Simulated scan of single mutants.
Amino acid sequence: METLEYTIEIDATSEKVWTALWDETSYRQWTSAFTKGSFYLGTWEEESMMKFLDPENNGMFSRVLKNDPNKEMVFLHLGEIFDGVEVPQDWGDATETYLLEETEEGTKLIARIKTSEEFKEFFEDKFPQALQNVKNLSENQL
Protein backbone atom coordinates (compact mmCIF):
# COMPACT_ATOMS: atom_id res chain seq x y z
CA MET A 1 0.00 0.00 0.00
CA GLU A 2 1.11 3.48 -0.81
CA THR A 3 -0.31 6.67 0.72
CA LEU A 4 -1.06 9.44 -1.74
CA GLU A 5 -1.97 12.90 -0.50
CA TYR A 6 -3.54 15.85 -2.30
CA THR A 7 -4.15 19.28 -0.76
CA ILE A 8 -6.00 22.36 -1.95
CA GLU A 9 -6.76 25.72 -0.33
CA ILE A 10 -10.40 26.78 -0.69
CA ASP A 11 -11.77 30.27 -0.01
CA ALA A 12 -14.91 28.98 1.69
CA THR A 13 -16.06 27.73 5.07
CA SER A 14 -15.57 24.11 6.03
CA GLU A 15 -19.38 23.75 5.97
CA LYS A 16 -19.50 24.77 2.31
CA VAL A 17 -16.63 22.45 1.41
CA TRP A 18 -18.30 19.58 3.28
CA THR A 19 -21.55 20.20 1.41
CA ALA A 20 -19.70 20.30 -1.91
CA LEU A 21 -18.08 16.95 -1.11
CA TRP A 22 -21.08 14.97 0.13
CA ASP A 23 -24.28 16.58 -1.17
CA GLU A 24 -25.72 14.25 -3.82
CA THR A 25 -25.82 16.86 -6.61
CA SER A 26 -22.40 18.42 -6.03
CA TYR A 27 -20.83 14.98 -5.44
CA ARG A 28 -21.85 14.06 -8.99
CA GLN A 29 -20.21 17.24 -10.26
CA TRP A 30 -16.82 17.01 -8.58
CA THR A 31 -16.41 13.25 -9.08
CA SER A 32 -16.96 13.66 -12.83
CA ALA A 33 -13.16 14.15 -12.85
CA PHE A 34 -12.89 10.41 -12.18
CA THR A 35 -15.80 9.15 -14.29
CA LYS A 36 -18.60 11.07 -15.96
CA GLY A 37 -21.92 10.25 -14.32
CA SER A 38 -20.44 9.07 -10.99
CA PHE A 39 -22.92 8.78 -8.14
CA TYR A 40 -23.31 7.06 -4.79
CA LEU A 41 -25.90 4.87 -3.10
CA GLY A 42 -26.14 4.66 0.68
CA THR A 43 -25.89 6.96 3.66
CA TRP A 44 -22.89 8.68 5.19
CA GLU A 45 -23.50 7.25 8.68
CA GLU A 46 -20.51 5.61 10.37
CA GLU A 47 -20.34 1.84 9.73
CA SER A 48 -22.81 2.10 6.84
CA MET A 49 -22.02 0.65 3.43
CA MET A 50 -21.66 2.94 0.42
CA LYS A 51 -21.62 2.11 -3.26
CA PHE A 52 -19.69 4.44 -5.58
CA LEU A 53 -20.90 3.80 -9.11
CA ASP A 54 -20.69 4.90 -12.73
CA PRO A 55 -23.69 4.94 -15.13
CA GLU A 56 -22.98 1.31 -16.12
CA ASN A 57 -23.35 0.16 -12.49
CA ASN A 58 -19.59 -0.45 -12.08
CA GLY A 59 -17.51 0.93 -9.22
CA MET A 60 -16.62 0.02 -5.67
CA PHE A 61 -18.22 -0.60 -2.31
CA SER A 62 -16.91 0.73 0.95
CA ARG A 63 -17.65 1.10 4.66
CA VAL A 64 -17.83 4.54 6.26
CA LEU A 65 -15.29 4.36 9.11
CA LYS A 66 -15.58 7.95 10.29
CA ASN A 67 -17.95 10.84 9.67
CA ASP A 68 -17.10 13.92 11.72
CA PRO A 69 -19.16 16.61 9.93
CA ASN A 70 -17.21 19.53 8.47
CA LYS A 71 -13.93 17.92 9.62
CA GLU A 72 -13.26 14.34 8.51
CA MET A 73 -14.71 11.51 6.39
CA VAL A 74 -13.00 8.12 6.07
CA PHE A 75 -13.96 5.13 3.92
CA LEU A 76 -12.50 1.62 3.84
CA HIS A 77 -12.72 0.20 0.32
CA LEU A 78 -13.83 -3.42 0.41
CA GLY A 79 -14.28 -4.41 -3.21
CA GLU A 80 -15.32 -3.69 -6.74
CA ILE A 81 -18.72 -3.74 -8.39
CA PHE A 82 -19.09 -5.13 -11.89
CA ASP A 83 -22.47 -4.72 -13.58
CA GLY A 84 -24.07 -4.31 -10.16
CA VAL A 85 -22.41 -7.39 -8.61
CA GLU A 86 -20.14 -6.85 -5.57
CA VAL A 87 -16.79 -8.63 -5.79
CA PRO A 88 -14.85 -8.46 -2.48
CA GLN A 89 -11.13 -7.67 -2.77
CA ASP A 90 -8.29 -8.24 -0.34
CA TRP A 91 -7.07 -4.64 -0.32
CA GLY A 92 -6.14 -4.54 3.38
CA ASP A 93 -6.37 -1.00 4.72
CA ALA A 94 -7.29 0.69 1.42
CA THR A 95 -8.75 3.85 2.90
CA GLU A 96 -9.80 7.20 1.51
CA THR A 97 -9.72 10.11 3.96
CA TYR A 98 -10.94 13.68 3.55
CA LEU A 99 -9.72 16.19 6.15
CA LEU A 100 -10.98 19.76 6.37
CA GLU A 101 -8.87 22.24 8.32
CA GLU A 102 -10.04 25.80 8.86
CA THR A 103 -7.46 28.44 7.91
CA GLU A 104 -7.39 32.24 7.94
CA GLU A 105 -8.24 32.20 4.23
CA GLY A 106 -10.96 29.54 4.41
CA THR A 107 -10.45 25.77 4.41
CA LYS A 108 -7.60 23.45 3.56
CA LEU A 109 -8.91 20.21 2.06
CA ILE A 110 -6.59 17.21 2.33
CA ALA A 111 -7.41 13.97 0.53
CA ARG A 112 -5.33 10.98 1.65
CA ILE A 113 -5.65 7.67 -0.19
CA LYS A 114 -4.02 4.38 0.78
CA THR A 115 -3.94 2.43 -2.46
CA SER A 116 -2.23 -0.38 -4.28
CA GLU A 117 0.17 0.30 -7.13
CA GLU A 118 -2.48 -0.63 -9.71
CA PHE A 119 -4.58 2.48 -8.91
CA LYS A 120 -1.76 5.00 -8.29
CA GLU A 121 -1.51 6.38 -11.82
CA PHE A 122 -5.30 6.83 -12.03
CA PHE A 123 -5.38 8.81 -8.77
CA GLU A 124 -2.30 10.87 -9.70
CA ASP A 125 -4.01 11.82 -12.95
CA LYS A 126 -7.54 12.46 -11.66
CA PHE A 127 -7.39 13.69 -8.04
CA PRO A 128 -5.96 17.18 -8.70
CA GLN A 129 -8.84 17.96 -11.10
CA ALA A 130 -11.39 16.48 -8.69
CA LEU A 131 -10.17 18.76 -5.88
CA GLN A 132 -10.21 21.74 -8.24
CA ASN A 133 -13.85 20.86 -8.92
CA VAL A 134 -14.57 20.86 -5.16
CA LYS A 135 -12.87 24.26 -4.88
CA ASN A 136 -14.94 25.72 -7.73
CA LEU A 137 -18.18 24.37 -6.28
CA SER A 138 -17.36 25.59 -2.77
CA GLU A 139 -16.30 29.06 -3.82
CA ASN A 140 -18.77 29.77 -6.61
CA GLN A 141 -21.91 27.67 -6.44
CA LEU A 142 -22.83 27.02 -2.81
Rank of each mutant, 00 (worst) to 15 (best):
G42A: 00
T43G: 04
T43Q: 09
T43E: 12
W44Q: 01
W44S: 01
W44K: 01
W44A: 01
E45S: 11
E46P: 05
E46M: 06
E47V: 08
E47C: 07
E47T: 15
E47W: 11
S48W: 05
S48E: 14
M50H: 08
M50N: 05
M50R: 11
M50Y: 11
M50Q: 14
K51A: 10
K51R: 15
L53R: 02
D54G: 09
N57H: 11
N57D: 15
N57V: 06
N58Y: 05
M60L: 12
F61T: 02
F61H: 04
S62T: 12
S62N: 08
S62D: 07
R63A: 04
R63D: 08
R63H: 08
V64E: 06
V64I: 14
L65G: 05
L65N: 06
L65M: 11
K66I: 14
K66H: 08
N67S: 12
P69E: 11
P69M: 08
N70E: 14
N70S: 12
K71A: 07
K71D: 06
M73C: 11
M73N: 10
M73I: 10
V74K: 08
V74F: 08
F75K: 02
F75A: 01
L76C: 04
L76V: 00
H77M: 08
L78S: 00
L78P: 03
G79V: 06
G79E: 01
E80Y: 00
I81T: 05
I81Q: 01
I81L: 01
F82V: 12
D83Q: 11
D83A: 10
V85D: 01
V85P: 00
V85T: 09
E86L: 01
E86N: 05
V87L: 09
P88D: 00
D90Q: 15
W91R: 04
W91V: 04
W91T: 04
D93M: 13
D93F: 13
D93N: 15
A94Q: 10
A94H: 10
A94G: 02
E96P: 10
T97D: 11
Y98A: 09
Y98K: 04
Y98R: 02
E101F: 00
E101D: 11
E102M: 07
T103D: 04
T103Y: 02
T103A: 05
T103M: 04
E104M: 09
E104D: 13
E104I: 03
E105L: 09
G106Y: 01
T107L: 00
T107Q: 00
K108N: 06
L109M: 07
L109V: 12
L109D: 04
I110E: 08
I110P: 05
I110R: 09
A111D: 14
R112S: 15
R112N: 14
I113P: 06
T115E: 13
T115K: 09
S116I: 15
S116G: 15
S116F: 15
E117G: 07
E117C: 06
E118C: 11
E118K: 15
E118N: 13
F119W: 15
K120P: 03
K120I: 14
F122V: 13
E124G: 00
E124T: 00
D125F: 10
D125P: 02
P128K: 02
Q129H: 01
Q129K: 10
Q129P: 01
A130S: 08
L131P: 02
V134L: 02
